[in-house]
Amino acid sequence: MMQQNGFEQILKSIFPEITLSKCAQFNAIELKPESIYAGLEKLHQQSDLKFDMLVCLTAVDRVTHIEVLYHLRSTFNGYDLIVKTALVEQPYELQSVVPLWRSAELFEMEIYDMFGISFSGHPDLRRLFMPDDWEGFPLRKSYKTTDVADNYLDSHKLLLNQQE
């Protein structure tokens, strides 16, 4: 418990107006999309915290907004922290965190592919899993899986017939 208090104090010293919440079993904070890079940079560099590992980067479509979750870990003291940010307005855009953690490169490509969030400053942003000409972003809630396969087959039927 002592550890928890100390952790909260350090966080308060960096972000005075932050409220600490819970996400699963981890501590979580929420930052604004504009200040996400500056905030994460502080967490990466602050000498008491030193979050040197981006374990996971993912997103959840909450219909009204898309929530992006950064799961940070410190290999020095074993702290875990979730940093959340909510993207409300389209086009969804965030600043890339590849300069801070290199593991972000693949994670951001996956999110771009699945949710259509573009990351400015990413060295090689392309569709990671889906074909280059795929329409729509599969993990959004508005994406209907039933129509997709039919449409894709229809659009390629012409091509197949021509080849024959």
């Binding site: 040197d52 374990v55 290999t75 953690w101 593991s103």
Partner: peptide, 8 residues
Amino acid sequence: KEDAISLA
């Protein structure tokens, strides 16, 4: 080691 940490 630094690369392994940065690459998670």
